[in-house]
Design a protein around this nucleic acid. Structure first.
Lengths: 164, 164
DNA sequence: CGAATATGTTTTAAGCCTAAAATGATATTT
DNA sequence: AAATATCATTTTAGGCTTAAAACATATTCG
């Protein structure tokens, strides 16, 4: 333990360069892949990534979700979802209705054509992802999954600590 | 090899679920950490992440960079940089001048106060990142670095293939 | 030289995104 | 029952982001 002249613990500037480099690499990877997926969605289907992501959430459930649920699952703000949903309702992909039991709540679900279009996009999307990760061996994939799970846990812990 | 009735190779729908799950986990991790960094930058220094990132690029060089250089390094569009720089010039963090040798080119650099402010933010930022990744062992960090490098290579190859 | 082409930046139009305030509805307390 | 609190959503104001078109300057080549 390092003590200063008044016998209190002091912080030495430690080296966290490796963690910083790791973070930058993580960010670079994600940005690269995300940009690639955006381009392809736009080119092939003229759809944006946020819209695709929203439809992906709704495709997982048969009977729709509330806006708050979507907002939590997508990790974006409520106001953001409002706008996104509005555009997807206009384009005919989503159906929006007020809950019967609680008139504060809006329930949204994929329309028939919305679901069909999404499934087509999702199938192709999956092949893009496979191609993007194709240099990784199955073992690499498993190992990355494990390390990213650990990273996620660590980050959540850190975020929680801050919000006490 | 699977052949169809006319003796041409056909595609079977393969399972790429693991790659897809990996991509979603990668995205979740990055979104989580990025959100956390955004909040802290905003709270502590009232600065946005894009501005911080731009200043980080400029801090690495003593004599400034052109807008195109910044745009390439940050992996964002030219127009985006124009607006970002404009705001940072107004706030006094950046100095912008037309190149002497090529009047198309704008050279930007950190002002004295801009650099000082950035250094203060960067030092604290590094400790946040260290905390966010603190559950990872040095070995985990090394291993993640390696696997992400491989991922980046794979993604770049895939992107390049598409842009032939 | 001068026209064609290339390069660097800005503008434009549209969409995404957030935090914070506002709105409207339900639940709880007094 | 009225006041208060909580909850779900929308609105607002501002910033970020992109692709494409427009603009300005440099370079190349006939």
């Amino acid at each position: 333990m390092i003590l200063d002249s008044e016998t209190k613990a002091v912080e030495l500037p430690e080296d966290h360069g490796n963690e910083l480099r790791l973070w930058l690499r993580l960010l670079t990877c994600t940005t690269l892949i995300e940009g690639e997926v955006r381009s392809r969605l736009r080119e092939r289907f003229d759809v944006t990534l946020p819209r695709f992501d929203l439809m992906a959430q709704l495709d997982k459930v048969p009977d729709g979700m509330t806006l708050s649920d979507v907002s939590k699952r997508m990790m974006v703000s409520n106001g953001n979802v409002t706008g996104l949903v509005e555009r997807l309702v206009v384009s005919g992909h989503l159906d929006r209705r007020t809950s019967d039991t609680d008139r504060r709540v809006q329930v949204i679900r994929l329309t028939k054509t919305g679901r069909a279009e999404f499934r087509k996009m999702a199938a192709e999307h999956e092949t893009w992802i496979a191609d993007i990760f194709s240099d990784l061996t199955p073992k690499d994939v498993r190992e990355l999954m494990r390390l990213l799970a650990k990273t996620k846990g660590s980050a959540q812990k850190s975020a929680q600590k801050r919000n006490l």
